[in-house]
Nucleic acid binder design. Sequence first.
DNA 1: TTGTGTTTCAAACGTATGTTTCAAACAATT
DNA 2: AATTGTTTGAAACATACGTTTGAAACACAA
Lengths: 224, 224
Amino acid sequence: MAQSDTVDRILDAAEELFAERGFSETSLRMITGKAGVNLAAVNYHFGSKKSLIQAVFARFLTPFCTALEEAFDRLEAESAPEPPCLESVLRVLTSTLVEMPRQHDRSIAIYMRLQGLAYTQSQGHLRRFLESEYSHTFGRFMRLLKNATPELSAVERYWRNQFVLGATAFTLSSSDALTEILWNKLGVDTPIEEIVDQLVPFLASGMQAHTVAYGNTKESDSGV
Amino acid sequence: MAQSDTVDRILDAAEELFAERGFSETSLRMITGKAGVNLAAVNYHFGSKKSLIQAVFARFLTPFCTALEEAFDRLEAESAPEPPCLESVLRVLTSTLVEMPRQHDRSIAIYMRLQGLAYTQSQGHLRRFLESEYSHTFGRFMRLLKNATPELSAVERYWRNQFVLGATAFTLSSSDALTEILWNKLGVDTPIEEIVDQLVPFLASGMQAHTVAYGNTKESDSGV
DNA sequence: TTGTGTTTCAAACGTATGTTTCAAACAATT
DNA sequence: AATTGTTTGAAACATACGTTTGAAACACAA
């Protein structure tokens, strides 16, 4: 039990520090200091700083992907034989995202910010790790989006998906700060559920924006 | 002439390395090595690494904001007495963004990625520097957005603005990587102008998505 | 040419990083 | 109680970083 305690303390501290400072800017001494454990414990339990970073992601991404797959199962069962509509797919994603950290008594902002960092900070090893571990769930989400927007070409859908991910990751990762700014400006408080309620229609409407024609787009094989 | 040459070589190298690796992951030795100048030259000409980072941003952000203000002037003159519509405001922003680096014979992706990093990487000194130098232009952009979406409540507009910034910063900052992924998947290349052409309708449509009614939203004073 | 202010250069400085070491403490089994 | 395998602890390691130094090279006016 002593081991699991040290491991968890390190993961807790690392999670928080990584989220608020980034990976390179967070030293192992900060982490072990905050966790109240010996410096060598990180290399003993995790092997290296890189492995620790991956472990932080695995601890919340694995249960999240499990929950998301289950939610997708329910969604597809409900709407069968039709594929689920765009807005319902987006809502399943965001509400699973919002529910997950609540069960673990943590702020969602931490996970969102970590997710954002995974995209932003170069960290080649992290990108490779995430791709090898969670590409299945991610691929399923992409497939659901595809079936919900059959009118889009593959290229259009790809970029609009990136816009969706960007708006989501950016907003939710800074949601605490943004909520506070709005409070100072207008005296209005926005709980995370309400942010999501604003976000989903925005994204759905953006995804279904009218297509623009381009010179070098082959209209013929838009089905790929 | 020798000075200005060294200064520019450092700025060129720093710009490129910062864009592809981030600030903390780029050492002064990498920069001076790539620039072909002595290590001490950075501290001699710029004083510190922080000042160098700010100088990199100032070199492209100052002319960009000048160009943007002029473009806003033209836009407001054209559409007077009506305020410019949402899509035209967004397009003026993005097209100025696309035109700027072309005049300096540089890849736009570098500046996009730098702009994204400015949001993402914490770097308190950079945020303070950008705010003190360029808040005027940013404020004007926000005011144009407000006048282009009079139907939105202040709270709605605030959050949708964040969605817009998030999708833009996220996508454009990773545009190279995302373009490469799409190339590997579909064999399609997307120049930056085309990404922007996809982005603008997405954002405009999202900003104008139909409003949802909330229980605790006061409908009466939506004009604040 | 001499003198003066500026710019370059190799080398070093002090500090912080990730990692390793090895002895001590601990937990559990025999 | 003795022995084993596991976990902690303080200290040191090697390396990389941003920055400073002081002498040499340079540009250019007097």
